[in-house]
Design a protein around this nucleic acid. Structure first.
Lengths: 216, 216, 216, 216
DNA sequence: CATGAATGAGGATTCATTCAT
DNA sequence: GATGAATGAATCCTCATTCAT
């Protein structure tokens, strides 16, 4: 019987690892609950109590895993940034032409943002705080750094593209920024439109226009 | 007749006009203070007391002009949207070529956003609330409506451009959305870089790329 | 023409009297407005602004006639007590039999209370404050004094009645208190019933029972 | 079987029962503190902070047990009405003569009111609000209903008394109302005199007079 | 570790009162 | 005298955080 087997499943004696895993599991659980709550109510109006309830745990337990509400914000930011970074990591190193790379990059980004859905609103809010210099120094840097990293990688692709004659000569910094702006902006447009079919079309046209704008 | 003239020269103590002006003055004064405070601290952390102090008035006075904090949010939203609308109104009807119109539109938008500076952060936050459906129905509509209006006007310009052979054939809805996404996105990029010189270059490149992307 | 005559009406040169009269008129006007407002909203929830609007004057003007809100309470109390006192004054000295006097007293009291309607609720509230010793010393005394005066007069009537053989021997203080209790209590019953016809019948039976209770 | 017994002796950590009891305990504790405070300062001037201090708990804790100040009012009203209802319940069904029943009723009521002391002032105030239609519908009904129930029961006693020849023929509704008026009114008189000895005498005379008023 | 009852700092809002016009 | 805009003390209520169990 499956139940029996489950009960008798091997339990590793190295509790420290297990515990660590459980800790991370619950952290993730809480972060996911937090994202859900914050997306619905906003950063300030989303209560710790809501998060606890959403995660199916006690209010106090949240504080076993996070020192404060701000730390949850921070964790969400990290999580989102981490997810984004790793998602593109392989793309940047893949062995395809600059044009294909850029298109893949845009499609993937937009796909990701589309899947993030409401959560995007939190990111926006957290970043607004960051931009406001709320978390003086620390987080602002994190965000800016990620953006800079990202931009550098795009610049590299653009450079390759120019070298191999796929792209016209251009201000690489400008176009890289433009690309990022274009993705952020489209995400916003989607937020205010919520029409996946229409957005799909727009996305295609947008990518086409952008690529035409930099082609040789 | 002197007497008659005198009578007609007499300005009645009809303070209503003056008062109305004063009322609007103070409303504006408060809104400006609110924008300053909210931009600095965020929508939720910006206290009414802060606004009052910033405006150099008493806490209670704020409530003489606004029923609640939310009404202040609303007023800011209205003010910003109004400003934007009127700013572009004349542009849309001006008698220049589609290409010039689009370039002017982008330059003006970005210029305006640049000038809005911190206030942009509030708008973002207010709109995030709207997008979140916080102000169920009301504000969401206002924002969506403005965006739709805007998009329609851009679509019209694109149409003209295609007709007179300046632009390539395209999905006008898609490109219009792209344009707006560019502008929103660039505003964000600016928020996170705060480097006017660099932004100026980026702006130029962005406009060039965009126009190239839709040229025939 | 009437209008003309009005305009040319004689205006007494003794302004002090006129002014005094006007002052008292406006005081009365404000008190009446206050009674209306307080009856509707309660003592604490009835705002000075409401009173001013009800009286058709400016908020500040109220303070030309009353030093504070509490003074308005006080004035209302005085007014009601005064009205009651004078109403009974003549009754107590009229030349009718003790039995008739008592009946007249009860009927008149109840009639008066019935006519006071909602205003009775204010009196209740003001007296509750008094009973609570809110206006330390001052008003509590006024109320207690009036009650004592009233009781004394009833005791006198009862005494007369016993002497001339109309009433049985009794604890006059007890019965006097009972009489007053009975009137207060009936007023409350009316408040909770608001049915004048039914109340009329109840009143008759109540008076009959009471009189039977003290007859020889 | 010992083991079996042991197993059955085990008391599960089902705190729900205990907790429920504790919750009600603290609710009661808060209500009692509230009565004390409100009696002293009045419904509006009695602050939540006062209640918390009086109950020896934190301000926020009050809100763990009551959603708002109004809910506390409501709870007090319910508590008082409940206490009254149950107190008389047995009396109405006891197996004594109508005359004795009525006397017992009056004595018990007055005794109860005397013991309620200051709390009576709150009840008055809450009922004044109810009478004023402040709590539109809901509470007004509760009070009126209780009064009607009460009156009906008195009417039944009077009916019995008439049938068995103890009471004279009368308007039962009128006399029942009179009885209740007596009790309310006497309570008020007590509030304003605070002299237990004197009140005791008055009470006796009041009951005597009332009974004489309805005897055959 | 988990929990949720308890807490009080903090902030929106109200309204009696003042005072310049 | 009359007015109502301005004021800030006062108060209800929320919610992040703590801590005893």
């Amino acid at each position: 019987m499956v139940v029996f087997e489950e009960v008798n499943m091997y339990i590793p004696t190295d509790w420290s690892v297990n515990t660590q895993i459980n800790r991370m599991d619950k952290r993730t659980q809480i972060i996911e609950a937090a994202i859900k709550v914050f997306a619905q109510k906003g950063l300030e109006r989303g209560k710790i109590a809501d998060i606890a309830k959403e995660a199916g745990i006690g209010k106090g337990t949240v504080y076993e895993y996070f020192r404060s509400k701000e730390e949850i914000f921070s964790a969400i930011e990290q999580a989102v940034m981490g997810e984004m970074s790793t998602a593109f990591e392989e793309l940047f190193v893949s062995d395809i032409s600059p044009t294909e790379k850029l298109i893949a990059l845009m499609e993937e980004s937009l796909e990701m943002m589309l899947q993030m859905g409401d959560a995007l609103l939190i990111v926006t809010e957290i970043w607004a705080q960051a931009a406001r210099g709320f978390w003086h120094g620390h987080s602002t840097t994190a965000l800016a750094t990620m953006y800079d990293d990202f931009r550098e990688k795009i610049v590299a692709i653009l450079k390759d593209g120019i070298v191999c004659g796929e792209f016209r000569s251009m201000s690489k910094d400008g176009v890289a920024t433009l690309l990022m702006a274009f993705m952020d902006g489209l995400a916003w447009q989607y937020m205010l439109m919520k029409d996946e079919n229409r957005f799909e079309k727009i996305k295609q046209e947008a990518i086409r226009s952008f690529m035409k704008g930099i082609e040789k």
